[in-house]
């Protein structure tokens, strides 16, 4: 299971990083989302394999899991939701203003 999760995180990371480096700005936004999901998975694994009972729910029999990584992921997910919404709004303005999705064509500042 650990190996599978590790591979899944690595794959998500790789795909996200590849997409973020593409010229198409929409693909780059998808890459950003994939990267933030990969990070959430990575944070999840930091506490996933110690204990198996839910913490703070009823009288746990057996070892409870570490609740901190889950709290961290919750915060990280909320923040990444905000950033995703914002980046999409920004892409809308960019596509309207420049009439292109190619990030190499966004050269207004270089002039």
């Amino acid at each position: 299971m650990e190996i599978l999760t590790a591979f899944a995180i690595g794959l998500t990371f790789a795909v996200g990083l590849f997409q973020i480096l593409r010229r198409n700005v929409i693909r780059a936004a998808i890459g950003l989302m994939l990267l933030s999901n990969a990070i959430s998975l990575y944070l999840l694994t930091t506490g996933a394999y110690i204990g198996e009972k839910a913490a703070y729910v009823g009288i746990a029999v057996g070892e409870p899991v570490d609740p901190l990584p889950q709290a961290l992921i919750l915060t990280a997910i909320v923040i990444s939701l905000g950033t995703t919404a914002f980046v999409l709004a920004m892409l809308y303005i960019i596509s309207k203003r420049y009439k292109t999705c190619d990030s190499d064509a966004l050269t207004g500042l270089a002039k």
């Binding site: 973020i20 700005v25 780059a28 950003l32 990267l35 933030s36 990070i39 990575y42 944070l43 930091t46 506490g47 901190l68 990584p69 961290l72 990280a76 923040i79 950033t83 914002f86 980046v87 920004m90 303005i93 960019i94 203003r97 420049y98 966004l106 207004g108 500042l109």
Partner: peptide, 29 residues
């Protein structure tokens, strides 16, 4: 009129910084 373009660049850079910070958080934890 190029404000959005500058913001786009800055945003991706700071997101990258945030991702690195979260990776550090995981590794330290």
């Amino acid at each position: 009129r190029y404000g959005v373009e500058a913001a786009y660049k800055y945003f991706y850079m700071s997101q990258l910084a945030a991702i690195f910070l979260l990776l550090a958080v995981g590794a330290l934890y």
